[in-house]
């Protein structure tokens, strides 16, 4: 690595060296081994693995539940961010701090707690069971767990945008006689939608890969409530590394595509904020 212009500040060699050394051990070498291992797989093998019925079913379950959960969080995230920025009310700081709980609480703990709550014997599960709705051990349960995991993403993406929003536009619209609903949909909503979509994308990516909270609540029935990370896990437990790696590659590509789209929205977003096109 070569410096393009010299700086008077010392420490380039040392800090870059440490950075590259640790990065190699923790990220580069493991990734390289993934590439090396994949290169031994034949194309026919790869196609055969990912077109297995059970694997295809798991893709459907994973993508569907992640999408539904992130959509719920998109709506709730905008409401929560709005409430936290625009209103004052008792316990506001507590609510603001609570949003971060899914990042702080180990996923396994969230998983068993939500399972106990939504099983037929649990508080919420018992209530819905009266109407014949089962939550735990169905796709609904997976969605509940994924909603929990994804709560902070949209809130934390939208909050700063709402805070920075110039109130003079709202005031101008209000003076010109626009109703509050109209102001929200015509002025505020277009401003926050890129940030909200960024949060949605990040939550979706996280939900696709989520394992800890889902395994307990899903019931893990093949074709119905078996998510893709779980299939990878069971292939690993049977020492079928080739299948596990193949399925993992599909998930990796999916999360990179998600990330790429998020970055696209984000860079357009910053361009708009900076006043460009």
């Amino acid at each position: 690595m070569k410096r393009t212009n010299r700086s008077v500040i010392p420490g380039f060699g040392l800090t870059t060296g440490i950075t590259l050394a640790i990065l190699s051990v923790v990220v580069l070498i493991p990734l390289a081994s993934l590439v090396v291992f994949t290169s031994h797989l034949s194309w026919d093998e790869i196609v055969a693995t990912i077109t297995r019925d059970r694997v295809l079913a798991s893709f459907r379950v994973s993508f569907l539940t992640a999408f539904v959960a992130s959509s719920v969080n998109l709506v709730m995230g905008i409401i929560l961010a709005w409430v936290l920025v625009k209103y004052t009310f008792p316990l506001k700081r507590l609510v603001d701090g609570m949003i971060e709980l899914p990042f702080a609480l180990p996923t396994a703990v969230a998983g068993i707690a939500l399972t106990a709550l939504t099983a037929d014997t649990g508080l919420i599960g018992g209530f819905f069971a009266k109407f014949g709705i089962k939550i735990a051990f169905t796709q609904l349960g997976i969605i509940v767990a994924l909603i929990f995991i994804g709560i902070p993403f949209v809130v934390r993406a939208v909050q700063p945008v709402l805070e920075k929003l110039d109130p003079s536009y709202e005031e101008a619209a209000s003076v010109l006689g626009a109703s509050r609903t109209r102001i929200f949909w015509k002025i505020i909503f277009p401003e926050i939608i890129p940030a909200a979509l960024t949060g949605f994308g990040l939550a979706f990516g996280r939900c696709l890969g989520e394992y800890g909270s889902v395994v307990f609540i899903a019931g893990n029935k093949p074709f119905e409530t078996e998510i893709t990370p779980l299939i990878i896990m069971s292939e690993l437990q049977e020492y079928d590394y080739a299948s596990a790696t193949t399925i993992a590659l599909v998930m990796l590509i999916a999360s990179f595509v998600t990330l790429f789209l998020v970055n696209l929205v984000q860079s357009r977003n910053t361009k708009i904020l900076k006043g460009g096109v």
């Binding site: 493991p30 990734l31 081994s33 993934l34 291992f37 696709l208 890969g209 989520e210 394992y211 800890g212 990370p229 990878i232 896990m233 690993l236 590394y241 596990a244 790696t245 993992a248 998930m251 990796l252 999360s255």
Partner: peptide, 12 residues
């Protein structure tokens, strides 16, 4: 990266 995939690459 999904945590499961993180585990997988170290296994490999």
């Amino acid at each position: 990266v999904s945590p499961i995939i993180a585990g997988l690459i170290f296994l490999l």
